[in-house]
C-alpha cells in the first residue's frame, strides 16, 4: 500500500516540450467546458510544477490557463465551512483573516515552500501535484477537509486520500478546498523532523462536548496516513502510543524505517498534545 514513488522518465531538457495551444477561460463554466472539449487538457495555475512534470513524462495537449478565474481565489467562510479557492496562493492564504478561523492554519500554511513559491504556488496546485513532499494534503487530511471538483458531468467532493487514488472524474477541475469548522477546531503542525517526517494534529470538540483529535504523519516519500486519537486519560505519551499502534506496518520510508517513524511520530505527537493543552506530559 505504501510504496515509495518511482522516479519518472526524465526528458533531457524542458526545451523538449512541444508547443501547445493555450486556452484562457473567463469563468469556471468556460474552464470546465475547455477541460471537456480540448485535446489532452492540462489545467495550469501557479506554474510551480508543470515544466518539471513535463520532463517526467506528463503529456500536454492543451494548456487551460486559469489565470482569469478570480472566483477561485481567496479564503472565505461559507456557513460552517472554511472555503479555500483552488487558485489561492500560499502567501495569500497564510495572510488571510478567514484562515484564522482555524487557529494554527495560517502559521502552518506560511511554512509551505519558500517565499518565491509561496507568492505564486497555489493551494490547488499543491494538492493536485500529488508530490509526497508537498504539504497541503497533510493539512487538509488532518482537518477533515475535502476538495470540490467540477466537470462536464457535474460536481464531486473528494477526500485527500481519494485524490491520491486519482478518483476525481475524468477531465475535472479542482475548484475549492473546504474545511468543516467543528467546535474549537485547531491545528498544530510540526516540521521539526522534516524531511524525515512531518506531522499535523487537529483537535476539536464533538457535538456531545467530547474532545476529539486526529494526527497525520507523512514523509518525503510516503503519502499521508491519518491516526484517530482517543483523548481520554489525559496522558500524552499513552494517547500517542495508542494512536501509533494503528500505524500500518508497511509505512516505511527508505530514509527512516517503520520502527523509527513509529517511535519518532509518537514522541512528536505527545509533544504536540502537550503544546495544545490536550493532555499532560
Amino acid at each position: 500500500m505504501y510504496e515509495v514513488a518511482q522516479a519518472g522518465l526524465i526528458a533531457a531538457s524542458y526545451r523538449d516540450i512541444l508547443p501547445f495551444p493555450v486556452i484562457l477561460p473567463e469563468t469556471v463554466n468556460e474552464a470546465v467546458a475547455a477541460m471537456a472539449d480540448a485535446e489532452a487538457p492540462v489545467p495550469y495555475a501557479g506554474g510551480t510544477d508543470l515544466c518539471g512534470a513535463v520532463r517526467e513524462g506528463k503529456p500536454v495537449g492543451t494548456l487551460v490557463w486559469l489565470k482569469r478565474l478570480d472566483e477561485l481565489r481567496g479564503v472565505r467562510m461559507e456557513g460552517g465551512t472554511l472555503s479555500i479557492g483552488a487558485l489561492t496562493t500560499h502567501a495569500e492564504g497564510a495572510a488571510s483573516d478567514a484562515a484564522g478561523a482555524v487557529p494554527g492554519l495560517p502559521d502552518a500554511w506560511s511554512k509551505l515552500g519558500k517565499i518565491r513559491i509561496r507568492l505564486s504556488g497555489t493551494a490547488g496546485g499543491n494538492l493536485m501535484a500529488r508530490h509526497t513532499r508537498y504539504e497541503m494534503s497533510i493539512l487538509l487530511t488532518a482537518l477533515g477537509g475535502a476538495a470540490q471538483f467540477a466537470s462536464a458531468e457535474g460536481e464531486a467532493d473528494l477526500s485527500p486520500g481519494e485524490i491520491w487514488d486519482r478518483a476525481e472524474p475524468a477531465r475535472a477541475l479542482l475548484t475549492r478546498l473546504s474545511i468543516p469548522l467543528a467546535a474549537d477546531l485547531r491545528l498544530d503542525y510540526d516540521r521539526t523532523l522534516r524531511p524525515l517526517m512531518t506531522q499535523a494534529l487537529a483537535l476539536w470538540t464533538d457535538g456531545a462536548g467530547g474532545a476529539q483529535g486526529r494526527a497525520v504523519i507523512a514523509t518525503e516519500n510516503l503519502r499521508p496516513v491519518a491516526l484517530d486519537l482517543d483523548l481520554t486519560g489525559n496522558d500524552a505519551k499513552a494517547i500517542s502510543a495508542a494512536a501509533y499502534d494503528a500505524l500500518p506496518d508497511d509505512f516505511a520510508d527508505p530514509a527512516s524505517g517503520n520502527e523509527w517513524l513509529h517511535r519518532a511520530g509518537a514522541a512528536v505527537l505527545a509533544r504536540q498534545l502537550v503544546r495544545q493543552g490536550a493532555a499532560r506530559a
Binding site: 506554474g47 508543470l50 518565491r116
Partner: peptide, 21 residues
Amino acid sequence: ERAVCGACTVLVDDVPRASCS
C-alpha cells in the same frame, strides 16, 4: 532548471519568479 535554486529569478510585476519554470 526546476524552479528550485532560484539562479534564474526575475521579477514579473515585482513578484520574484523562477524564469526557468
